Amino acid sequence: MRRLALALGIVVATGALADGRAAQQAAQALTEAAQKLEAADGARDRVKALTETVQAYEAGLAAMREGLRAAAVRETELSRRLEAREAEVAGLLAALSGLGAGASAGSLLHPQGPVGAARAGMLLSSVTPGLASQAQALRADLDEARALRQIQQDAADQLNAGLSGVQTARTALSQAVANRTDLPRKFTEDPVRTAILIASAETLGSFARDLDRIALDEVPVDLDVLDDRKGVLPMPVQGVVLREFDQADAAGVQRPGLVVATGARALVTTPVAATIRYRGPLLDYGLVSILEPQAGVLFVLAGLETAFGETGQVLPEGAPVGLMGGTVPDADSVLSPSGERGGADRTETLYIEVREGDVPVDPRAWFATDKG
């Protein structure tokens, strides 16, 4: 993490990021997460520290990707500008070298006599400073291009270290979750009833409506009322909304939820304390985790590759719910200008549905999403 923070500092110092503060904040988050991880004491603390570590890595790597792509694009722009002006500059330099300090007096003769020679001399005297100015500007562009190239070369190793580090943190998090035994439990799942419900469910709505049937020995658990936090809850995953509530996809299929594009292996967390009402495969939604933050409200998170926890457990706010699938891009893909491999970051999609009673509602009414 220290190496990744250093690389982020390099990108910030050179101005490769449009907003260096994002990288600085990401680097600070990495440092704080490392400190919390080292100070973690106990199963729950370790899960919390590892969750924050993975999130800090994701934020830091995202900031670095943007910065390095900006550097690569700027370098390409400068290289093309230099190539386009190469012939022009070469011609002007050749003309000047022919009229250098060693040129004879005859070389300054003009067919139109002294007046023509004087005019040519004045023209040359005006062109020479202009050419010197162009040469200086080109030299600055060349120096910037070289600096940007060096940044990318130096940061590639740091980026690979960061990609390796986040994978290590994800593996450790999975193990810590598996070893966690101190979570409260609201009910015990009846596997037979669950199997019957899955087999009989025709829609997500019908499944959600009958979820209470799979619970045995249910006990009351005090969870915060969310009325004052409605609309400002953090999103369960870092990503970009691809499809809105009830917006049809390419096949014309409408679903009453948000489709969010995420990075490969992105961490999904619960925005508030919630009970796991169901965890497992469901219909054509893939691996699903259904959370109940308060009575009558369900958060449906579908499309996971790994789902954490057990049905009936009560997760604290910010706890890991699962991981997305996909293959993490390597440093070469990250460093590629935003063209041929620019879409390598967000290859997975998480479906988010919110249900109040039996009715699905727009998740934007609950979550503070990026509306841009």
Rank of each mutant, 00 (worst) to 15 (best):
T311Y: 04
G326D: 13
M324Q: 13
V253C: 01
D249G: 04
G263D: 15
G312M: 14
V241Q: 12
A248L: 13
G280E: 14
R255M: 11
L242V: 15
A302N: 07
G309V: 08
A261I: 04
M324K: 02
L304F: 07
P320V: 08
E317T: 13
F308M: 09
R265K: 15
T306L: 09
L287Q: 15
R279M: 10
P256T: 06
G239L: 08
G239T: 12
A264I: 06
D249L: 03
A307D: 07
L242A: 15
E292H: 00
R277G: 08
Q238M: 10
V300M: 11
V272L: 06
L282G: 03
E310I: 09
G303R: 05
D284H: 12
F308H: 11
F245H: 12
V314F: 08
A295E: 11
D249W: 01
M324G: 05
R265F: 05
G239N: 13
A295D: 14
V268H: 00
F308K: 06
P281G: 07
L323M: 13
A295Q: 11
G257I: 05
T306E: 15
G325D: 09
D249V: 01
P320R: 07
D284Y: 06
R277I: 00
E317Y: 03
L267P: 03
V288G: 05
L282N: 02
R243E: 12
P271R: 04
D246S: 14
A295F: 05
A264N: 04
P320Y: 03
L323F: 15
T270R: 05
L298T: 12
T270L: 03
G296M: 02
A274L: 03
L258T: 07
T262Y: 00
G312K: 06
E305M: 13
L258I: 04
F245R: 05
V268I: 11
E244M: 12
V240H: 10
G303Y: 05
P316T: 07
E317M: 12
A248N: 07
E310G: 14
E317D: 11
S289C: 13
F245D: 06
L282V: 02
P316F: 10
R255V: 09
A251N: 10
G286K: 10
L282E: 01
E310D: 15
E292Y: 02
Q254G: 02
L304A: 06
T269V: 14
E292V: 01
V321D: 08
S289V: 15
G263V: 04
A251T: 14
A319K: 03
G312E: 05
D284A: 13
T311G: 14
A295P: 06
R255N: 07
V272K: 08
Q247H: 10
G303L: 04
P316A: 13
G239H: 11
